[in-house]
Design a protein around this nucleic acid. Structure first.
Lengths: 261, 261
DNA sequence: TCTGGTCTGTAACCGACAACACAGAGGAGA
DNA sequence: TCTCCTCTGTGTTGTCGGTTACAGACCAGA
């Protein structure tokens, strides 16, 4: 069963060789599955209201599984049947056009919940999700969600709130993309990415992303992103190193992000 | 009380003269308020599961009010305290940047529910909503929603589904904006706008929008929109008249909408 | 019927960003 | 240490769509 899944993962849903991936990654169909109930759901905001007992009950129906770097969690050929909770690692959710260009919707960190689109039933939903590093997920089936989560008002409210926030974020991104030049979008994106993070005592925030990954979020090319990043660096707002970005002056970046030209 | 509201509406939330509005509209602070319970909520999908009695109970706490063309329903200076149900007329929800450029998030038709952002609590939320024709709305307060709606699993599920659909639509729009050229975006937008509509027996769909309003949805200029519209018309896919667009060949438009260059 | 405001069509110019094309730099593994 | 691959920096050229500037068409009200 798990092997079947892995096989589907390897089969590219588009013709050719996973055109959305920055680079080819080796695919090894070996899968490590873990079964450790009782620790999947703690520290997830969605379930903050629940007692340990209730948590354990839900946890019991949520199997875990690890994904290797580059492995797909879901795709068009492998639609979403579950709500996922990210325990460790990072996941990139993205969309792809016919000609292979991609836009990433989000890069998720531990504690995140995703796969909410199963809520919308039959609607065509063509997001992809891939692990961008070694990742551990646990999943709740649709029926579990509808029966145990949405029927509980405490959780229903949190789910709605979560979705509402997602709507707000998306609207924000949409206007940014439509109305702001690249540099402003880059600044605002970096600030947003740094937000959830507890900043070190120096007041600095570190983001682990390559220019390529950033470009995916911005809806632009790697080259343009690099250029804009150099700009920010030369203004002293960020410091860069391979795959790492340090925000030095968040207020200034925030100001920049509302520039309109 | 209502007069106060009207006064706030007239006061421009940005400096100057409502820069987002296509053209100045006269503002008359007279307000007509209606009080007709028992008919606000029928025919709204959200409440489909409720019995007539339950409907009536909720309806009783939902006052109605009319808005004149061009009048603001909410804005930054007048934040959202309620969930709105659109009974008649049309409402445009949009965002504005500092320099007055606007992107419209949605143009709503009767039966639509909006204002879900009150769900997200303190989060800064800077959408505007204006009536683009004579409009009748009724509103449910935040507390009502949390106590009577989210606590009812039947409705909670529908709310989540509704928000989930909104997320999906926004993600779609975001990728379109990022990855597709104007003509394709226009085609897909027109198809989407025509979707909910029951088409006439000829198979044609009519959309009542000006180029300017379309441009607002597309995140582009009126001129570019006109150009693209002419293109579509010359291909025989649509027919135009002042403020009205007739879709002649939906399949072809759909095909066009997935073009990537 | 006239008039002013609102829509729509068109065209020349220009600017931001995509596409393409390399070059160098940092890291990981042999 | 050497090698390979990924990541980053930068230039050149092309193009889509924004900007600016009008003109004609439709419509409502005087």
């Amino acid at each position: 069963m798990i092997d079947q899944c892995a096989a589907n993962v390897v089969a590219a849903p588009l013709s050719g060789q996973r055109p959305w991936a920055p680079t080819q990654r080796e695919s090894n169909p070996l899968v490590s599955a873990t079964d450790e109930p009782f620790n999947c759901l703690s520290a997830v905001e969605l379930f903050a209201d629940l007692s340990p007992d209730e948590l354990a009950a839900i946890d019991r129906m949520a199997p875990s599984r690890t994904y290797r770097t580059g492995e797909l969690v879901f795709s068009q050929s492998q639609p979403v049947h579950a709500l996922f909770v990210l325990q460790s690692g990072r996941v990139r959710v993205f969309r792809v056009t016919e000609d292979g260009k991609a836009l990433t919707m989000a890069i998720l960190e531990p504690g995140a919940v995703f796969g909410e689109m199963m809520l919308v039933g039959q609607r065509m939903y063509d997001n992809y999700a891939e692990a961008i590093e070694e990742t551990l997920l646990c999943e709740l089936s649709v029926t579990d969600v509808e029966q145990h989560l949405l029927s509980d008002p405490r959780i229903a409210i949190r789910i709605s709130r979560h979705l509402g926030e997602q709507v707000a974020r998306l609207e924000e991104r949409l206007t940014d993309l439509a109305l702001r030049p690249l540099l402003a979008r880059l600044a605002s994106t970096l600030v947003r990415l740094g937000e959830p993070q507890r900043r070190s005592r120096t007041g600095h925030v570190t983001i682990r992303l390559t220019h390529e990954q950033l470009a995916g979020l911005l809806g632009t090319t790697r080259e343009s992103t690099s250029k804009a990043m150099s700009d920010l660096a030369s203004r002293g707002l960020i410091r860069q190193s391979r795959g790492r970005i340090v925000l030095l002056d968040v207020p200034a970046m925030t100001a920049l992000s509302t520039a309109t030209a």
